[in-house]
Design a protein around this nucleic acid. Structure first.
Lengths: 210, 210
DNA sequence: TAGATTGTTAATCGATTAACAATC
DNA sequence: TAGATTGTTAATCGATTAACAATC
């Protein structure tokens, strides 16, 4: 019913709503949210209707109420805890990424095979990879991030599955197959940049072509 | 003609092809590439046909040739240089991200308002934000990455536009409007994780619902 | 009531998939 | 020739958009 695009838009609406709330606004119209997420007002209302969210005809939506409803849909009624496997550049950055807090996302531990990186005392501890299974089970963690080199991505996935992880974001530039019982999203930074390069070069060509 | 999804898939095919080449393979079938990018073989051939890439009926595709053709489409005939504005967690990680090398992507400088972060001697120098315009112009940089807090994202975009940047990846969780003459892709890590959370919770509900 | 906005149904658009023709 | 794979055209599917009805 709701597709991936729709959920991404809900996240964006929520981000905008939090900002509006901080500015003490009370009401919002679909047109405002459309501006913030770079879509049309119809799209906003359609997205809401998929989840039975309704406003006041003529009066728009109450910001507080909308935030509560979208937050519930996105699973923000509780803090969602993640582990990270692979404490390289990206893993290290995500370990203390400040932006997660307002999204009720918490990184609770990192794991790496390199013992020079281990640090049990840190606020977010970095532990030996062997401890992943126990830690995940003991702390009932459901989400994981893979930020290992691509050669290690597949086996990291296996470890996470064995540990009982149910949702994974994979930064390695290798497309992991989505297994039964686990959601996997492949996001490669190289690929994102290549996308921008392609469409930029294309736009330039079109311009000079005219 | 070619949509965003298609270009992302081309990147993935290319990644897989590089790996196959490293293993000394010579030929590849659309079925193989389909496996690597988690799509169907028809999708692969359709993508290729959009760009006039053809193989040998019965004989598949020559890996070397395919890499060359896809690389040309993705703008890899020359190294594409990026600047990063905002040397926080993410910016710092991207500055030295090893995965960019094989994609012919080079980060040439970082910029920040915090002078404690400045370092002209580093391999990838970190410079005061005021120098962005000059640097970009002098070095003919066309691509930029925004990794500043969301409150600063909009003005960073303006600075980049003035400097002449033509393609931008924005990590701030605020949706920047795509201006004339510049490609902007908004990628927020919070949003990506929220997406995974939603679909994981959904899958769990469906399972227990049965 | 008139005007503005929401909410829904139907139409359109674009991307994926199926079917099949071409050919090595 | 028979079999396997590519390449293309047509059909399907799903998401977005347009049109309009509902109502505050």
């Amino acid at each position: 019913m709701a597709n991936k695009g729709c959920i991404i838009r809900l996240s964006r609406y929520r981000n905008a709503l939090l900002r509006l709330k901080a500015l003490n606004f009370v009401k919002v119209f679909s047109e405002n949210l459309a501006d913030s997420a770079r879509v049309t007002a119809v799209q906003v209302r359609k997205d809401f209707s998929l989840f039975g969210i309704s406003g006041n005809r003529r009066g728009g939506y109450l910001i507080e109420e909308l935030i509560a409803k979208i937050s519930a849909i996105l699973g923000k009624d509780e803090v969602q805890r993640f582990v990270i496997v692979g404490i390289g550049n990206i893993g290290q950055a995500l370990l203390h990424y400040p932006g997660f807090k307002k999204s009720e996302i918490e990184i609770v531990a990192g794991f790496d095979i390199d013992q020079n990186k281990h640090n049990r005392q840190a606020a977010v501890p970095i532990l030996p990879l062997e401890e992943l299974g126990n830690f995940v089970e003991k702390n009932k963690i459901r989400f994981g991030i893979i930020s290992v080199p691509d050669s290690a991505a597949q086996e990291t996935l296996q470890l996470m599955l064995q540990a009982g992880i149910k949702g994974i974001l994979n930064f390695a530039p290798i497309c992991l197959k989505e297994p039964q019982n686990c959601v996997v999203r492949n996001l490669s930074l190289e690929t994102e940049l290549e996308n921008i390069i392609y469409f930029t070069v294309l736009a330039e060509k079109e311009e000079t072509g005219k």
